[in-house]
Design a protein around this nucleic acid. Structure first.
Lengths: 112, 112
DNA sequence: CAGGATCCACGTCGATACTG
DNA sequence: CAGTATCGACGTGGATCCTG
């Protein structure tokens, strides 16, 4: 979790990437944004992500204020994850990253 | 280095982040973009990055087509790194990431 | 259901020494 | 100057078992 932007040599790009980068956070944010918002659901969508990993990543996203965690006092337990407005504000960035990836990584079976 | 976008569950966002994310790549790309383009210079700008790391990251960036590596047959050896057009095309993304970071990470000394 | 706790295998990375 | 090679410490993360 990001506490101080100075941690990254004062580079706001690195700091931002730290907040939602990594192997799972983009996917988690995407799924939550389309209302796949329960722990078990998320786990099923990302079989390669262990429970431990998923928990950690969710905690970090929560700590960085990108998602909310709402606990319902029921049996069995129920937890709902939703994007905060800060999380929502990443959407344009995601869109650009996605476009760039499709343009530059998908359509290049000729290279290499 | 990224060879297949499918490696990331088909998520173009993750794939793109893989290409220029991490602790050093954004900084390296930034410095190269402002003509800090020699190995030794880069090293001096990022004292926390070991030679081994710097070499690896430069090779990956080169392999992913974001930078060019030009070798001059001189003594002492001289190598110049420059952004490719593909590397240049990341600029708008960088700008947005930077803005987001400044807005959401820098101006929040109140939060924890 | 949604995790927490523990253990340990694995990969990553820094430090050091060496080279064209 | 711009790297490469090797070694070993360290952290990350999977597997497994346990809990409210």
């Amino acid at each position: 979790m990001v506490k101080d932007i100075q941690e990254y040599g004062g580079c706001p790009v690195s700091a931002t990437l730290k907040v939602f980068g990594g192997k799972w956070k983009p996917l988690i944010l995407y799924f939550i944004s389309v209302d796949v918002n329960r722990f078990g659901q998320l786990q099923r969508m990302m079989p390669g992500c262990s429970k431990r990993m998923l928990t950690n990543q969710l905690r970090e996203l929560e700590g960085d204020g990108l998602i909310d965690r709402e606990v319902f006092a029921e049996v069995p337990p129920k937890v709902i994850y939703t994007l905060t407005s800060k999380g929502e504000s990443l959407r344009p960035i995601f869109r650009e990253l996605s476009n760039w990836g499709k343009m530059n990584l998908l359509h290049q079976s000729d290279k290499n």
